[in-house]
Design a protein around this nucleic acid. Sequence first.
DNA 1: AACTATTTGTACCAAATAGTACAAAAATAA
DNA 2: TTATTTTTGTACTATTTGGTACAAATAGTT
Lengths: 208, 208
Amino acid sequence: MYHLVYNASMINKTQTRGRPKEFDETEALTAAMHYFWEHGYDNTSLDNLLEVMSIKKSSFYATFKSKEELFSRCIDLYRQHSLEFLNTLNKDIGPKQTLLALTTHTINELEEFGKVKGCLLINSGQECYNKYPQLSQQVTKEFNTFNNMFEKLVKEAQVLGEIRSTKKASIISGRYMNTLNGLVVTIQAGASPELINDLVESLKEILE
Amino acid sequence: MYHLVYNASMINKTQTRGRPKEFDETEALTAAMHYFWEHGYDNTSLDNLLEVMSIKKSSFYATFKSKEELFSRCIDLYRQHSLEFLNTLNKDIGPKQTLLALTTHTINELEEFGKVKGCLLINSGQECYNKYPQLSQQVTKEFNTFNNMFEKLVKEAQVLGEIRSTKKASIISGRYMNTLNGLVVTIQAGASPELINDLVESLKEILE
DNA sequence: AACTATTTGTACCAAATAGTACAAAAATAA
DNA sequence: TTATTTTTGTACTATTTGGTACAAATAGTT
């Protein structure tokens, strides 16, 4: 088949011997990540992945080795994207507004997609716990990275005076994250708009 | 096979024509409920169920019709048990202490089982959303029943003066439930004991 | 053009899944 | 005893699962 589309491998890598890949690895990975994010690990079959990644089975296994390894790379990509997102947001609007923006972002998913995708890490943590030890371990590790990021944002906000509370940053960020985690569950369970609004209000109180 | 054990069907129902059941329906249902609770719906196979219920496949389908219908009855049983539990606790120690006891109960699961089973409804809500519409609907319904129960407890606590806040009961119970939901997720993700303690503290503050 | 390295398309596989078919077993009713 | 009704044990089935085998296709290298 002829190349009708340029892709990253054609641009970044100098062409080596052998038939060239007809798909872009990063693009395929990103597509897989979004599918996992919305449907969860077990509820995503290989066929689902092949379709959304637009590749064939043999290419899949040649490039990603297995479903589990692909997921591992997706989690990695997710953390990478998310932290970059938070960092640029932090530069633009400051740490406290960044934390608040993450909340509204989560809630806006509701109106946009009719459901809340929540956090890929949280979702898959529930799923792979006790079933996929390798993944479980990785999820816990990445989760801590997020935890640290939130704590860093809170500390910065305290230094800037955006947060006046003198509580330990780890405690503030912990309460923030816990409320946010609860929010995902609560919204999914069909909470009223009134309750959702109040939960956002309680989040603001935590960051005062 | 001879009856070696008496069971509820032998006691409650007058024996009718035909070979009598060799198992107790409620016992089997309860066993299934606990397994679902710990492992989730999809991650529980029919063979798992047959083993834990100690019945054979044909008895299973003759009595429970399908895996989905069994789960539906398990959710029902769960709500029944839970509400009875909360009601008797309320009579014993009052509404506010009941709400606090539910929290410590959740956390104690950690030490007891090394993991947090959390709430069967919340767990299965995440799982069956968009995949099993029938179950999804039932879960939302039962979830509201719990919501109402919490609201009732808060109202009673306000009347008794155990809760002094004059916020709307639905708001207080909503914040309470959201924090509790978050707690299950946060603990599972490997939160520090210090954070867990503080989250319990924040729950107490909500009920002040 | 011949050779080598890599990717792709198709057919296949073994295991697990939820669910059925049906005869044998165990009880009551006649 | 015989007929009827219900449960139970075993074998089977169709589908889906993640994963392989392998030849054909497509590129660079000599």
